[in-house]
Each structure stands twice: as structure tokens, then as C-alpha cells.
Nucleic acid binder design. Structure first.
Length: 402
DNA sequence: TCTGGGGTCCTAGGACCC
DNA sequence: TCTGGGGTCCTAGGACCC
């Protein structure tokens, strides 16, 4: 049987945020625990040494579930679910606030541990990565006699390295490409290793629901099911011309290829950010006129934080955009490209003010955000005009809506 | 008792230029 | 003076992912 030209791994940390919390609160192992909510109370220890936790049933507000332990998932509580809805399903579940500094720390630790075994890594966020194993010695040397054995041994080595560095488990899928590996890493979760070749596609991939493919989301998934295609195998068996008629040239082709397990995307070890943003959902919907001062202050703060992000990462940007979400969840964006890159909070605020003027405020607002794109490295930005001169600019004041 | 926050990529129309 | 065809940039919205 011909061997694949690449061995690509997808590594996914098991219930990552929840598992990091369990390192801190090991007494919660096996409990239904939910991470989420902006102001959930942290656990506190009573005088007698016992712990007191916030419970899901006591939560009020607009938060969503960020992660849940496997025990909570058994009760029907999943990521992105509204906390109020989750509370109906698991009122007694323990609610912990998210601690992103801690998660980022463990993220760096596990990625460094993987890099010691296999250095060609593509970052896919805080809790998952792709790894090119093709040239890792234990894999390369096994080509010809026992390729699958070599791949599995390296996978075990990676898992051990992650465990030693963090005390956390992960699941790994290894196949000839990213698309299949992403699916494979979920087939034996938690703490599993799944190795597949192209020959395994009919038996292992085709029975899966279409939504298991990374790139088929809620909308496309619904449409496929309505068209009678429930499984990946159903897509694979469909006439590609018909798929193109239904989904367009680009997505139709992609669906056909994906269902057959074809994907030639490379591992990307370095990338530059495209945009940076900050947004916030309000506790209650706000009125553009009645809450004008409050909204103005929130916009000031978002621009301030965005400017700090830019400074920390040493970028400036030419395009400033705002995002508004109204009651009813209707989202509107406006953006504006400037002649030169900017990076200060005042410049961002000014551009955001111009964008705000182009929006009709006929409903209450639930979210406001600011984004900066068209990024350049800060070193490429021409020297700033001195603040004293800028203050003279006539249009500086009274331009913004809020 | 709906629906966070930070991203990427794609599409499609219009402006503008050659 | 009744109408082409690219290419690129900008803008708005939307799908999708972690």
C-alpha cells in the first residue's frame, strides 16, 4: 500500500480551561463544572477549611459557557451555550470565572513541550495545534518497515512530554492532512491517539455527521441536512456538479474534496495578524440618546484598550472599524480607511466617531466594538504630528456621535 | 430566562484606473 | 454617444473557528 507523503498531527487539549482549573481545585475532579460568565465569583475557603463555590443556578446575566467538564457535558451543557439556559439543565453545576492569564501560561507550556519532540508547529489558538511529523526522526526512520508504529510512538512521546510539563492530557489525530487529522483527534477523546490513512476514510470518516468537518458550520450543516445529506459519506457520494449548483463553485468544490479527505494545505509556522479588536456586550441594552454619556465612555475605553494592544504588539493600522449589535441581535459594521497608519487611542477614537456618524440608531444597543486592520509594523509609521499642533485642528471636537 | 470575545476568510458591488 | 474588460482597493455583511 502506498504510504502518505506527509504525516500531519492535530493535537487538542482535553477540556482545556476546565482541566487547568482542576489543577488548582483538584477536589472538583469528576464534578460538573462550568467555566464562564464575566463576573462569576471565584471559589472561597470557609473558616472550617471547606470550599464554597458559585452555582450555575445563581447566575444572572448574558454570559455563555466557555468550557465545561465532561461531567457537565453529560448533563447537556456545552461551549457557547447561554449560562441561563445551561442553568436550566444543570442548576447544581459549579460555576468558575475564566482565568485567561492562567490558560495562556499553560498554553505556552504545552506548546513548548511539543516543540521539544516535533518543532514544526502551526498555532490554532490557545488549546490546539497542528504538527508536521513527516521529518521527525522516529517517523522518518520507520518509513518502509513500520510507518504506523513509528507515528504512534512519536504521538505517545508528545503526549508524555505535554503531561510532564503541565499535568494535562490531550488527544491526537494523525493522518496525511490537516482536515482528516482535525477529525481524527476527536475520535478517541479524551486522552487518545488516532492514526488514519486514506484507506480508513470509508469506514471511519464517511459515517460521521457532516458537521464534524471543520468548515461546515451551523448554516451549511442545516442546508446539507435539508438536502438529504446527513453524513460525510452522503456528500462524498453526491455528484460534484450538483454540489456546485447548490453551494457555488468554490464551496461546492471544497465540499466534494473535503468529503473525500483531500486537503493539501501546508503547515503554517508563522503568521502576521490581520486585525486587532475589542468589543463588549452590555449588561442591559443601552439607548443611543438616553445613555449617550455612558456609551461615549465605553467607546473611549475600548479605544484605549485597543491602543494598548497595538502598543504591546508594536503595530499600527490604516483601517478603523466599529461594530454595533442592536437588540434583536442585528449586527452592523462601518469602517474607514485612513491615508496613514494610526496607533493612538485619540486617533482611533476620532476615526471610530466618524464611523458612528454613519449609523442609524433606531434600536437599543447590546454590543459595541472597535477594530483596527490594514496593520503595519509600528516602526514603519511616520513620526507623529506633535500634540500641540494637532489640538489646533478645527474638526477635532464635536465630531463623534457619543 | 437565548446568543461572549477575539479572530480569519469569502463574497459582492462600486469606485477608480488603464 | 449607448457602452469592453481587467485589476485593485474599499466597504458591508456573513460564515466559521477557537
Amino acid at each position: 500500500m502506498p504510504q502518505p507523503d506527509r504525516w500531519i498531527a492535530h493535537l487538542d487539549m482535553d477540556a482545556f480551561y476546565a482541566s487547568v482549573e482542576l489543577l488548582r481545585y483538584p477536589q472538583l475532579k469528576g464534578e460538573a463544572v462550568v467555566i464562564g460568565g464575566r463576573r462569576a465569583d471565584a471559589p472561597r475557603q470557609r473558616e472550617d477549611g471547606s470550599w464554597q463555590y458559585a452555582r450555575l443556578r445563581d447566575y444572572t446575566g448574558r454570559g455563555v459557557v466557555t468550557t465545561s467538564t465532561y461531567a457537565a457535558r453529560d448533563l447537556g451543557v456545552f461551549s457557547a451555550m447561554g449560562l441561563m439556559k445551561a442553568a436550566l439543565r444543570a442548576p447544581d453545576a459549579i460555576l468558575l470565572p475564566a482565568d485567561f492569564d492562567s490558560y495562556r501560561k499553560y498554553s505556552r507550556l504545552f506548546k513548548a513541550a511539543v516543540a521539544e519532540v516535533a518543532p514544526v508547529i502551526e498555532d490554532r489558538g490557545i488549546d490546539e495545534i497542528y504538527i508536521d511529523l513527516t521529518d521527525v526522526p522516529g517517523v522518518r526512520d520507520a518509513v518502509g518497515h513500520d510507518p504506523l508504529g513509528g507515528v504512534k510512538a512519536v504521538a505517545r512521546e508528545i503526549k508524555n512530554s505535554v503531561w510532564r510539563a503541565t499535568g494535562l492530557t490531550c488527544s491526537i489525530g494523525i493522518t496525511p492532512n490537516k482536515l482528516l487529522s482535525k477529525i481524527a483527534s476527536e475520535l478517541d477523546k479524551p486522552d487518545g491517539i488516532t492514526v488514519l490513512t486514506l484507506a480508513d476514510i470509508p469506514a471511519r470518516i464517511w459515517p460521521l455527521a457532516v458537521r464534524k468537518i471543520n468548515g461546515i458550520g451551523p448554516k451549511a450543516g442545516d442546508r446539507l441536512v435539508k438536502l438529504g445529506l446527513q453524513t460525510v459519506g452522503d456528500i462524498a457520494a453526491a455528484d460534484p456538479r450538483w454540489l456546485i449548483e447548490q453551494f457555488g463553485e468554490s464551496y461546492g468544490h471544497w465540499l466534494h474534496n473535503a468529503a473525500h479527505g483531500r486537503d493539501s494545505r501546508p503547515i503554517v509556522t508563522h503568521s502576521e495578524p490581520v486585525s486587532i479588536s475589542r468589543e463588549t456586550t452590555f449588561e442591559r441594552d443601552l439607548h443611543a440618546v438616553h445613555d449617550k454619556a455612558l456609551l461615549g465612555g465605553i467607546m473611549d475605553e475600548l479605544c484605549e484598550r485597543l491602543a494598548q494592544d497595538l502598543a504591546r504588539k508594536r503595530y499600527a493600522g490604516k483601517t478603523v472599524g466599529i461594530k454595533l449589535r442592536f437588540e434583536g441581535f442585528v449586527t452592523v459594521t462601518r469602517d474607514q480607511t485612513l491615508k496613514t497608519p494610526i496607533l493612538t487611542a485619540a486617533d482611533i477614537r476620532h476615526a471610530a466617531g466618524l464611523c458612528l456618524k454613519r449609523v442609524k440608531f433606531d434600536k437599543r444597543l447590546r454590543l459595541m466594538g472597535v477594530r483596527i486592520g490594514n496593520l503595519v509594523h509600528a516602526s514603519e509609521v511616520p513620526p507623529a504630528v506633535p500634540a500641540a499642533e494637532r489640538a489646533k485642528a478645527p474638526e477635532r471636537e464635536n465630531l463623534s456621535l457619543f
